[in-house]
Design a protein around this nucleic acid. Structure first.
Lengths: 126, 126
DNA sequence: ACAATATATGCAGAATTCTGCATACCTATA
DNA sequence: TATAGGTATGCAGAATTCTGCATATATTGT
């Protein structure tokens, strides 16, 4: 039996589900699956203190659900794993086609730029 | 916007995920999605005391993940909701085609019958 | 080197969930 | 109605998770 066909133990699967079973973490995932976002963006979106947001991001990062990419002072998070995307598609529904917009109150380059950076436009239409 | 297209709040979705994020409950769901099973069957399978199994079944039942059907002394549980089945297909993989078998140690009619009851055969090939 | 901005980490009290157990309930049969 | 088998319920101590906050680190510009 090939390893890909063998089901993971229930304890492993439920450990991953536990990371999803949390309203704020779920909203973070729903946001960063649309396009990568920085911590201050999520901070405004969730209306939670920055350490709180960073903490939940760490849980998701160490659980392998999101990846981080640093750019200067900012750290952008995104959903890189295709299997995770599939789970989110089932649980939250497919990613809507609409492009994400600058968020008032977020001071990151993405949200304050006059011209949209090309890689952001590409990411939004993922 | 039709109600079916509007996404449920993250708190509701995560509440449902919490029910799944538990190894024993996950195994119960994986078992009863293949064919309906009674409490004593799950008791043998999980190797847990009966009150423990009944308790987890109650959590799943009150969460709307499983349905119960009484037949004499026995209560059979199954996954009736199609949306729940879809979640389980994504999380656990599709239901294998193989038929479920009598379980040594379970004393319910299904597991002790010489001839397989027709409705069980039908349920197994769901 | 210093200051400012963005993010990360550590920790403790609070809140929640888990699970073992005693016992109650419900149905069928003698 | 008495008994037995199968299942359900209630509860409490244990274990885990949650979250607010103080503070640490890291990068950039002056």
């Amino acid at each position: 039996m090939p390893d890909s066909a063998r089901q993971k133990p229930y304890s492993e699967i439920s450990a991953r589900l536990k990371l999803l079973a949390h309203p704020e973490r779920l909203q973070i995932l729903d946001t960063v699956r649309r396009s990568s976002q920085c911590v201050c963006h999520l901070e405004v979106l969730l209306d939670k203190p920055q350490p709180y947001v960073s903490q939940q991001l760490r849980v998701l990062r160490e659980g392998g659900l999101i990846c981080d990419e640093k750019d200067g002072l900012n750290t952008y998070y995104c959903v890189c794993d295709l299997g995770v995307r599939a789970w989110l598609d089932t649980i939250l529904g497919p990613v809507p086609a609409e492009r994400s917009r600058p968020l008032a109150g977020c001071s990151c380059p993405k949200c304050t730029a006059q011209e949209l950076p090309i890689e952001w436009v590409l990411a939004a239409s993922f």
